[in-house]
Amino acid sequence: MRQTLPPDQRLSEVVRALRFPLILLVVFIHVPLASGEGQVLALDLPGSSYSWYQYISRALSFILGDMAVPMFFLFSGYYMFTKPKVWGTKAVYVGEMKKRWGTLILPYIIWCTASLLADQGLALAKGEALPWTSLGASFSRLSYTFVLGPENFPLWYVRDLIILSFLAPVIDWVSRRAPWLLLLLFLLYLANCCPWEIPAPRGVIYFTLGAILGSRRIDMVALAERGRVWVLPASVIATLLLPFCPEAGVLGTLHLLYVPLAMAGALCLGGWVYDRMPKLHHFHLSMEKYVFFIYVAHEVLILSAVRGFLYRHGWLETVWGYFLCGGVVVGICLIGYAILSRWARRSLAISLGGRL
């Protein structure tokens, strides 16, 4: 029988165990071709294999996948503010920002640079002209590589997390003194009225939600489990039906409302796995060390090479090809991690911000 843990420890274990399934979702978000995003399926879905690929890939990559990155923002905000700190003091603020240099900023620079070098190397191999012909062109490419893109596109989450870290005193004040501002921001987000793009409004919302919960030491898993009788069925039904719902117009609001529902469902499911399936829970915990590497590395040539191979052979836009692509990408990342951790352990640790 499982030993009963203190609530804080159970919460920590559930959050850590969820990170691996969530990073798998992040990989599968990027598997379908860009043309598949935003597609609305017909309600009379025919039985062809391509139709099933459209439905499954949309349900997993563009519906369920929408909650993966917001959950990482939620976790980051929660654990950044769960320990009381006087963010308004210079010593605390400077000390915390110094920590972010090694854990966030340096890995961000390294992996954006790796993606840039890989892209330029491919361009040279193909005999294409490089964009460094003038100061303006070079500045434009560098600004895209490290800010506007970024070059390693999934790292927009780290870019936004860096910005939110610098805004920690403001977020701390909001979370403790004016949490109602989050509701106002969420309503603006639903109305598509947020007047900025970087950091992403959804990142600000869920990071701040995590800060509000963390500053009050509210167990987010226990909170979600209070409504599990309806949360889990509702999130499953919504996941199955939303592929038929357009993301534009009035009905698009349903997709935005789905995200917190799915997040609550994931927390409930994580708690259930912890309580009822200890072997699976421990497997997820054992895979946590690979999460950040899979995240930063999978878009650096790996996904494009695997997806390109499957696409050229007509296998990508099939159900089995969809899962094969994601599985092979993750497998290559795991092999790459094993090789680097054996032969370049220190360099790997630096590139992962000490997450080794």
Rank of each mutant, 00 (worst) to 15 (best):
residue 153 F to Q: 12
residue 154 P to I: 00
residue 155 L to E: 13
residue 156 W to N: 10
residue 157 Y to R: 02
residue 157 Y to L: 06
residue 161 L to D: 03
residue 163 I to K: 02
residue 164 L to Q: 09
residue 164 L to W: 05
residue 164 L to F: 11
residue 165 S to P: 00
residue 165 S to F: 05
residue 167 L to F: 08
residue 170 V to S: 10
residue 171 I to L: 15
residue 172 D to K: 02
residue 175 S to N: 03
residue 178 A to N: 09
residue 178 A to W: 10
residue 180 W to C: 01
residue 181 L to M: 13
residue 183 L to E: 02
residue 183 L to V: 15
residue 189 Y to K: 09
residue 190 L to Q: 10
residue 191 A to F: 00
residue 192 N to F: 02
residue 193 C to L: 15
residue 193 C to Q: 15
residue 196 W to G: 11
residue 198 I to T: 14
residue 198 I to D: 00
residue 199 P to I: 05
residue 200 A to R: 10
residue 201 P to V: 07
residue 201 P to L: 02
residue 202 R to S: 08
residue 202 R to I: 14
residue 202 R to L: 12
residue 205 I to A: 08
residue 205 I to Q: 05
residue 205 I to K: 10
residue 206 Y to D: 00
residue 206 Y to W: 11
residue 208 T to D: 08
residue 212 I to D: 10
residue 214 G to V: 09
residue 215 S to G: 09
residue 216 R to D: 06
residue 218 I to C: 08
residue 218 I to T: 13
residue 224 A to Y: 09
residue 227 G to F: 01
residue 231 V to A: 13
residue 235 S to Q: 12
residue 236 V to N: 07
residue 236 V to I: 15
residue 237 I to Q: 00
residue 239 T to W: 12
residue 241 L to N: 02
residue 242 L to K: 12
residue 243 P to H: 10
residue 246 P to G: 09
residue 246 P to M: 04
residue 246 P to D: 05
residue 247 E to W: 01
residue 248 A to L: 12
residue 249 G to S: 08
residue 251 L to K: 04
residue 253 T to E: 02
residue 256 L to C: 05
residue 257 L to A: 13
residue 258 Y to D: 03
residue 264 A to G: 12
residue 266 A to Q: 04
residue 268 C to H: 06
residue 269 L to F: 14
residue 269 L to C: 12
residue 270 G to M: 01
residue 270 G to V: 03
residue 271 G to L: 06
residue 271 G to E: 12
residue 271 G to W: 08
residue 271 G to H: 11
residue 274 Y to N: 07
residue 274 Y to M: 03
residue 276 R to I: 05
residue 277 M to R: 14
residue 279 K to A: 14
residue 282 H to L: 14
residue 289 K to A: 11
residue 292 F to E: 04
residue 292 F to H: 11
residue 293 F to G: 02
residue 296 V to W: 08
residue 296 V to E: 04
